[in-house]
Amino acid sequence: MIEIALAAATLLFFAGLALILLRRSLIVWLLGAELLFNAALVVALAGAVRWHSPSGQVLALFLMALSGAALAPSLALLLRVKRELGTLEVDGLRLLREREAQDG
């Protein structure tokens, strides 16, 4: 069962990374970040099974709270980005580079 949990964590990690690296929309990025958090969670639970200790589950619970805490300001920033810059595409968010080119 531990091997299956580790395989599930691998799948989640890979899917999260693929969403972040391949897709263009910022909101899909955040979805990928949630999948990465879930991969870490599954590994913590596998550790709890392996060593018969509740510490792994405590860690998983903290990770859940952390991912929720990370998501809320990210979504607020997302709405802000859409309002200020008018786009949600990662390739469009290159203001720093363009400012630098103008100055130089």
Partner: peptide
């Protein structure tokens, strides 16, 4: 199945009930 019934419930309450609903609100 991994022996974490509380975490299973929290996964449904927190992730499905709160975090993904936040995503839907943002969309």
């Amino acid at each position: 199945l991994l022996g974490a019934p509380f975490l299973a419930a929290m996964e449904i309450l927190l992730y499905l009930g709160a975090i993904l609903v936040l995503f839907l609100f943002a969309l």
